[in-house]
Amino acid sequence: MDFAFMWDTFLTLLPGLPLTLELAATSILAGGILALVISLIAVVGGPIGRGFTRGYVFVFRGSPLLVQMFLIYYGLGQFRPLLQELGLWVIFREPYWCAVIALTLNTAAYSSEIFRGGLQAVSVQQVEAARACGMSGLLMFRRIVLPIAIRQALPAYGNEVILMLKATALASVITIMEVTGLAGKLIADSFRAFEVFIVAGAIYLAVTFLVTRLLMIIEFWLSPHLRMRPPSLT
């Protein structure tokens, strides 16, 4: 084990970390919003909405993310004149945005199923109570249904966030130099796969660890009603 080399590796890989985090944050945020829309269509959209969302989820969960990324980055490049005419070429010529789009669409499919589960787990009584208080439509959704659904979906959604963090590594295949991209280049140059793997793996594990802690804090913060009461002073 060559610790000087590993320290150098660490310093080489660290500049890739902001890009990894940026990719993950952008696509998780955009994917989360899209997933919420999709799960709402699935729950309230009737048979047509349900059919559409089922098809969407089937396509994006059934095929590898890497192929989806290639289809968007290389595949859409074939329609360059059309995209230029529409003014979309500035987006699709950038590997960064193609990776973000692929990651977003992919995570939206997985998360929408998680959110749908959360929405459908909201009990009838709670909705009835809201109606009895005179809440209607949007107000009830915002104040009652959504908070309960988010609380129920959070543990499963946490897993999805971790998976997305790992999935950003695929962006390196379409020339984006984030942590895995830098690691791959370093391995190909130095041929010391084991040391580079340990350092890169440690970086990912550290980030995953921090994210799981963060999710635990959010979960704690969102469920004050489940906490034990502090012992009274009297």
Binding site: K166, T168, A169, L170, T180, I187, V196, L205, F209
Partner: peptide
């Protein structure tokens, strides 16, 4: 916790 691509690089 580690991306699969890294594992593939390691083995390859």
């Amino acid at each position: 916790g580690v991306p699969d691509l890294l594992v593939i690089y390691l083995f390859y």
